[in-house]
Nucleic acid binder design. Structure first.
Lengths: 142, 142
DNA sequence: CGGCATCCGAGTAGATACTG
DNA sequence: CAGTATCTACTCGGATGCCG
């Protein structure tokens, strides 16, 4: 049957992708360290995502501007995340030694390319989040 | 200039996507609760991701099979994640009342559609994880 | 086999205060 | 303004033991 064949092909493609990935993502080799997990940890962190999204929308932002926009984040966590995101190459930090001091953050090209991927995922999640929430509510009621 | 125009268009498209999203993702309204963050929290959790990837590759898995594959996860955390992922609709849980009991987990259609999105992101991360790790090392050396 | 209950330790986030 | 320092609170994960 036609639709089954398509489905099967789709599954085979998916399986190939996953197989290719498990070389890197499978934490069994080495068991103690997996770079992909490590990179994912920062990149999928809730604060990181919001910071990257806001810098995608407002190309240049200063520390306290980000802090206001990313509702609920503390100075401590924000400065930690900014430092890590800079270290990993997602964003740039430019210091202007004026008085008072001015620091500007912006996405790098690399950061923008990640933003594109991220947007695809968050769009999907946005599209289905209501469904997920209602799934969850229905499950609780059982 | 041509390349600038393309870049600008790309930025405008990105900005539109983000703007559309901020209606849902911006935690300011309501400040106390954002469904997208909530859904993301589970969906981007490192254990959840590994579980979904393995179920993408092996269509049906039992509890202890998953536990062996997802290296390092404890029974407690695995059963928590499975319950949450089932509640949110990503996977199905089928109990066979034999002795000893048998329980099988599989992705739902919804779970598979999420897997597709997830693979796009993890492929990107896999592609660039070396770069990120070396970025990070270079940053530390400064 | 497939969990759940309990306890405990580590790490992380938040609040607050302070500084170049 | 852009952080850092310190302390506390609390969540989360791991270990263990038990049960249907």
């Amino acid at each position: 049957m036609k639709s089954e064949t398509i489905t099967e092909n789709q599954e085979i493609t998916t399986a190939k992708k996953i197989k290719k990935m498990f070389g890197g993502i499978d934490p069994k080799n080495p068991p103690e360290y997996c770079p992909i997990r490590d990179v994912m940890a920062l990149a999928s962190d809730k604060w990181s995502i919001l910071i990257i999204l806001y810098l995608g929308y407002f190309p240049i932002l200063r520390f306290n501007q980000i802090k206001k926009k990313v509702y609920g984040i503390s100075s401590k966590v924000l400065s930690e995340r900014l430092k890590m995101l800079e270290a990993d190459g997602y964003l740039s930090r430019t210091l202007y030694p004026e008085v008072p001091i001015r620091v500007e953050y912006a996405l790098t090209d690399f950061g923008r390319s990640y933003l594109d991927k991220l947007l695809e995922l968050t769009e999907w999640i946005q599209k289905y989040s209501d469904k997920v929430i209602s799934n969850r509510a229905a499950y609780k009621r059982r």
